[in-house]
Each structure stands twice: as structure tokens, then as C-alpha cells.
């Protein structure tokens, strides 16, 4: 499917989601995408720090970043915007993010069934080869008619 034939454009859709709500509060921005993946950027912010006395981004915002990137990867892979809900999300935090750096969340939707969508992804702070976190998640489609 060529880019022209696709309906769901992550670059355009991001501003729709990040103009309000939790994603807007976090200040998420579009970064990049492919056929079945989307990358969003979480800019550094002083009020998102974790433990007192450490200049390290809290883990919560990374969870939100990956949840959002995963949802968009699913819409991109399905090329359709339908209601989905996170069922299960696992995040492994492999190292702290660098102080002052944006964190990028890249998620890939590797399988869609009639009722579920499976994603995996990573968060990095500049180099995707050296991630700060890995994630795996399953989303359910909330369709008016869910058939197995």
C-alpha cells in the first residue's frame, strides 16, 4: 500500500491527540513512522522527574509515551481509526534516560487479529541502538461487533 493510498497519517494524527488531555499535558510530539510503526517524542521537562535528588525522568511518562506510540502504531498498521483499549502493557527499564534529553518512543504493531493487536517497542534518548526501555503490549479492539 503506497503512502497516498493510506488513510491514517501518524504525522497529522499526532497533533489531534496531543492537542489535549494526557498526551497534551506530556507534550508528546510526532517524530517518525513506517508501515507498521510510529515514533513519538517526549521532550525533557523538569516537572516529570522521578525520585527526589536524582535528575532522572520518572518512569510513568515513558509508560504513557509507549502506550500512545503503540496505539498509533496499531492504527497505522490497520490503516483505520477504531476504538482500542490497552489490555496488557509491560515495560522493562534497562537504563535511566540522560538528563535534559528527549525520550523517543517507537512502537511496532506486528500482528492484528479481529479482536486484538500485538505491539512491541522501545524507548531511547537519541540512539535507538541503545534503548532506555523495551515494551510489549496487547490492545483489544472495541468494535460494535466483536467476532472471534
Amino acid at each position: 500500500m503506497s503512502e497516498q493510498e493510506r488513510k491514517f497519517d501518524p504525522a497529522k494524527a499526532t497533533s489531534f491527540f496531543t492537542g489535549r488531555g494526557h498526551s497534551g499535558w506530556l507534550g508528546l510530539k510526532y517524530s517518525d513512522h513506517g508501515d507498521d510503526w510510529v515514533e513519538l517524542e517526549l521532550p525533557w521537562r523538569e516537572d516529570l522527574l522521578g525520585e527526589e535528588g536524582q535528575r532522572v525522568l520518572a518512569s510513568g511518562p515513558i509508560l504513557s509515551l509507549m502506550d500512545m506510540a503503540s496505539g498509533m502504531a496499531i492504527w497505522r498498521a490497520m490503516d483505520e481509526f477504531t476504538a482500542i483499549a490497552t489490555l496488557d502493557l509491560r515495560v522493562d527499564y534497562v537504563r535511566p534516560a540522560r538528563e535534559g534529553a528527549s525520550v523517543f518512543g517507537r512502537s511496532q504493531c506486528y500482528r492484528v487479529t479481529r479482536s486484538a493487536a500485538f505491539v512491541r517497542g522501545l524507548a531511547h534518548d537519541g540512539e535507538a541502538e541503545d534503548p532506555v526501555a523495551h515494551i510489549q503490549a496487547v490492545f483489544m479492539k472495541i468494535a460494535p461487533t466483536t467476532r472471534l
Binding site: H22, W25, S64, D67, A85
Partner: peptide, 22 residues
Amino acid sequence: DETVEGRPEHYHGGATGGLLET
């Protein structure tokens, strides 16, 4: 509040996760 809202009138999964983690 708007800071936790995902789809209209519902919590964002990330906000719920942040509450659990905290």
C-alpha cells in the same frame, strides 16, 4: 482532570499506569 484524560471522559492508560507505579 485533563491531565489524565485519554479518549474523552476516560483515563489515558498511561495515566492509570503512572498512578499504579507511584
